[in-house]
Design a binder for these strands. Structure first.
Lengths: 149, 149
DNA sequence: GTAGCTGCAAAACGTTTGCATGTGA
DNA sequence: TCACATGCAAACGTTTTGCAGCTAC
């Protein structure tokens, strides 16, 4: 259908994105659809600038990207992490693919892994009285190829 | 001894701090001693601004604080974390008191806990070829008192 | 003596905000 | 229609940097 932006290819994909936005009570606008579609399809982590560059030219303003991302974080559609100093990275929060990152201290290449044995700690925190608990776990190291150089 | 700054009270403490700096190959200057002494004694996590305010008036410049902290991070004397958006928090890296944080999403109160069951994950990463591995683990939740209000 | 640290001021950076306009429901 | 989202530009707060002078070793 011609009203679909080029980066949303199928009606099925479009319906999924619209559904996610409505589910969270967010109104459906083109910038939101484009940003969410990108995060679902390419699955970062991406900085706000990465997202801006990956979207079609003039698709939307940087300020809009930040505003949308903040809403997506509030509604838990996306997660953020500080992998490099002073710059957030964003990722679609897919509950079926919970994972964590390891970033090479030298080349900054980001890898991910799915081990997650933090349930024990979470239950300790529940006993302490905390509710609505989330965590962020990042590893830093020097990758194999950087050790050679 | 009169050459000691007021916030470093004993020769013993002074010797410890000088020892840590020399061990890491950093030259011993007054700003570095004051910052490190503060981080050891008060044990944060503190933002750069917190540190600036806690030091004696005109003890050192903000730029110097950032420069020192970055060197302390490189030499692993301190660790940093992004607990609130866009602002780093710093802490003395005491290997005998490895711990993690939980911050309340509402009042921002920071609590800490000592469970650390991440050795399994680290060994997975070692098998993948990574060296010099560190991790950062933070929890976010709503604390007991914020649930009431 | 010299490498490297400091203070100061200015800049850089990612991010947020105010306001007028435009769009979704 | 009307609340809300957007683009633009300007501001914000944290962090970094250039440079001249100073300090540790």
């Amino acid at each position: 259908m011609s009203t679909l932006p080029t980066s949303i290819k199928t009606e099925e994909e479009n319906a999924k994105i619209v559904g996610l936005l409505k589910e969270k009570g967010l109104s459906v606008t083109l910038p939101r659809k484009l940003i969410l579609a990108l995060l679902i399809k390419e699955h970062g982590p991406f900085s706000a600038e990465d997202i801006f560059k990956k979207l079609p030219k003039n698709a939307c303003d940087q300020a809009t990207i930040y505003r949308c991302l903040n809403q997506f974080i509030e509604t838990q559609l996306v997660t953020s992490a500080y992998l490099e100093k002073d710059m957030a990275h964003f990722e679609f929060n897919d509950p079926h693919h919970h994972h964590h990152h390891i970033i090479c201290k030298i080349c900054k290449k980001i890898d991910s892994f799915h081990d997650c044995i933090l349930d024990k700690i979470e239950s300790t925190l529940v006993k302490k009285g905390y509710k609505d608990i989330q965590h962020r776990l990042e590893f830093f190291g020097v990758c194999g190829s950087c050790q050679k150089s």
